[in-house]
């Protein structure tokens, strides 16, 4: 058997432990899809796979037990899924055009969750559109609020929803619910002064607990959607670590531009010897220094006036 493993990997198939057998990986940006695609996935698994499907840790599907020679037929059956989920594709009918940049993960967001500050899937899809296909190893995740159910701090780019709370003092009845909630569940950024509530803007993390707690709608959400962007968290063998805050109260457009700029930065500085062309961005930053990264990342970015850049950044993590 002669198969080019480089080509098949780029095509989102996998070299498995079982000789002659591959697995197909389906990306689902933002982790949400119409249920009709499940029956298409089932059909591939039943026809060409071993009748099972694995739900991946990055919210995609992996169909194992596929013979290498069936890859073109699998790609044919993948086509309506790729089109339906609006995945950018270089050659129609030939499956995924890249696999390096991983599926963009998102928690369920404000489609369902009361805490979420925005529609996570919608933003995830917007990011996917901007970055895919790409061979570089980028991991991006979005989460609706600072609870961080999507564990975005374990990603190269972590995006956390923030709500800027607005206070209408004339609707406040001094019940204290917001102050109590913020203290118990969040960062204790509120205090009652003269029967009114004061918010410590530096402390506030934008979780929105005050808005949820207020019985009179004295607290509401500012309509502009803002986020906390964390960078260069990672799992892995060498030095797993949590992502650190890069910019707080930043907007969607800036985040997308920063991610795209980072692709340029990585292209320039990635270790040419990196195994499989894969190197966690954080190691590159360790080499070039944070300032160099920052220079590239913020090139032509028009940050909103709310944005707070955290600099310099030091990462900790586990050293084996």
């Amino acid at each position: 058997m002669d198969v080019n493993t480089k080509v098949l990997k780029k095509n989102a198939f996998r070299v498995t432990k079982q000789r002659g057998i591959t697995a197909s990986r389906i990306r689902v940006p933002g982790g949400h899809l119409e249920a009709k695609y499940l029956s298409m996935i089932q059909k591939i698994a039943d026809t060409y796979g071993n009748g099972t499907v694995h739900i991946t840790s990055r919210q995609g599907f992996e169909i194992p037990g596929i013979k290498y020679e069936d890859m073109p037929k699998v790609n044919e059956l993948l086509q309506p899924i790729i089109e339906g989920l609006d995945i950018n594709q270089e050659v129609p009918g030939q499956g995924y055009s890249a696999a390096g940049t991983r599926n963009v993960v998102a928690c369920i967001g404000n489609k369902v969750c009361p805490y979420a500050c925005y529609d996570t899937t919608k933003f995830a899809k917007r990011i996917e559109k901007a970055i895919f296909p790409n061979d570089l190893h980028f991991k991006i995740a979005l989460t609706g609020c600072p609870n961080d159910c999507a564990k975005v701090r374990m990603h190269d780019f972590g995006i956390m929803g923030m709500t800027e709370p607005r206070y209408d003092r004339d609707r406040c009845v001094s019940c204290g619910a917001c102050v109590k909630k913020c203290k118990k569940k969040s960062v204790a950024a509120l205090k009652a002064v003269n029967y009114r509530v004061q918010r410590n803007e530096e402390k506030c993390i934008g979780c929105g607990e005050c808005v949820l707690a207020c019985p009179t709608a004295a607290w509401t959400r500012k309509q502009e959607k803002l986020y906390r962007l964390t960078i260069f968290g990672r799992t892995g063998k060498k030095n797993p670590r949590m992502g650190e805050d890069f910019i707080k109260w930043v907007d969607e457009d800036s985040i997308i531009k920063i991610i795209l700029n980072t692709y340029d930065y990585v292209k320039k500085y990635i270790d040419p010897e990196a195994p499989g062309g894969k190197e966690h961005i954080g190691y590159i930053v360790d080499r070039t220094g944070f300032e160099e990264f920052k220079k590239w990342a913020l090139k032509d970015v028009n940050l909103p006036s709310t944005a707070e850049i955290c600099t310099p950044i030091y990462w900790k993590g586990i050293k084996y």
Binding site: P114, Y118, G161, L212, A217, Q223
Partner: peptide, 15 residues
Amino acid sequence: RIIGGGAFSDTDSIR
């Protein structure tokens, strides 16, 4: 209708 005026994000409230 207060667009976005509800307690949950992207929900309205009528006041």
